[in-house]
């Protein structure tokens, strides 16, 4: 039988727990957050932790607090990346980082962020029908955030409607930087499979080296969410979805011919399997489909309807 080679151990030295805790402690503010914030309702839960609404004891601007139990985090060093990225990179389409606390006795990490009262884009795509003008507006705002991150050598790697937050005024912001990767000069490609299966690009699922254009593919899948309410293959298991992406490439889109020519072309430019031919964020921001974007205020009725639903 063919000798199966063991996968070479990753050269990148894995950080020890102490190094990670030290890294987190250096990034965190001193003091106990429970003395500064009153935590109220739970907003949601994700792979890395839970998000709560909270109010500062002094002042009245509502905030969102993501609390993460450090004992069961698969890749703790990624938390350091998340905080560093959120602390360093500021943009109007990125959820604003406010503060972070490291509770060593409970080995918990609290990240305090701005609160967006419109909720996640997921609720809007699953509960309401978006028109092309609204899809263009949301897409443009997300592309602006991605264009900024990519210009800083950062890939988000987990673009999906769950990680796009909305304000009641129609503001659109990207969040959840726990899994983003920083591309340093010599290492401008990554290989670890990170993200959510249904939104993953073909080069990720087939374990090839990948770069920033994985975010462009996921944006294309998110446009399908805005059209159909969910990504392709969500009714299948994650493994089958990954198999379909690897073998089929560009997914079928229902009533694709009914979409405007501009939107059809825009989707084709994002869901291009060949990475070199796939568009980047610069090209997409200049695409004529962006001119169809309606005023962000037109998102408000969708958000209200989604909340009622």
């Amino acid at each position: 039988a063919e000798v199966i080679q063991r996968r070479p151990k990753s050269q990148k030295k894995n950080m020890s727990d102490d190094e990670i805790n030290e890294g987190l402690r250096s990034l965190a503010s001193p003091g106990d957050p429970t003395s500064k914030y009153t935590v109220s309702k739970k907003l949601g839960a994700g792979a890395s932790g839970c998000v709560y609404m909270a109010k500062p004891k002094e002042g009245d601007a509502v905030v969102a607090i993501k609390s993460m139990d450090l004992t069961n985090q698969p890749k703790k060093e990624l938390l350091i990346t998340e905080i560093e990225v959120m602390k360093t990179y500021r943009h109007q389409n990125i959820v604003n980082f406010l503060d972070c606390y490291f509770l060593s006795e409970k080995s918990e990490l609290w990240v305090v962020m701005e609160y967006l009262d419109g909720g996640a884009l997921t609720d809007v795509v699953t509960e309401t029908i978006m028109n092309e003008g609204q899809i263009a507006a949301v897409t443009r705002e997300c592309l602006q955030a991605l264009n900024y991150l990519h210009s800083k050598g950062i890939i988000h790697r987990d673009i999906k409607s769950d990680n796009v937050l909305l304000g009641m005024n129609g503001s659109v912001k990207l969040t959840d930087f726990g899994f983003c990767a920083q591309l340093s000069g010599d290492n401008s490609k990554r290989q670890t499979m990170v993200g959510t299966p249904y939104w993953m690009a073909p080069e990720v699922v087939s374990r090839k080296h990948y770069g920033k254009k994985v975010d462009v593919w996921s944006m294309g899948i998110m446009i399908i969410e805005m059209l159909e309410g969910e990504p392709p293959y969500l009714n299948e298991t994650p493994l089958k979805a990954i198999y379909r992406i690897a073998t089929k490439g560009k997914p079928e889109i229902k009533n694709f011919e009914k979409l405007s020519k501009l939107l059809q072309n825009f989707i084709d430019r994002t869901l291009e399997v060949e990475v070199d031919t796939r568009a980047d964020t610069d090209e997409l921001l200049l695409h004529d489909f962006m001119k169809c974007a309606k005023d962000l205020k037109t998102l408000r009725p969708l958000i209200v309807a989604a909340k009622q639903a």
Binding site: P74, D158, G178, Y198
Partner: peptide, 22 residues
Amino acid sequence: AKSKHRYQRKKRYTMVGSPYWM
């Protein structure tokens, strides 16, 4: 129905590295 709902929600969770089923 609750466990089905929980499974549906878990499908949208982020994955880091290859999971057990790969």
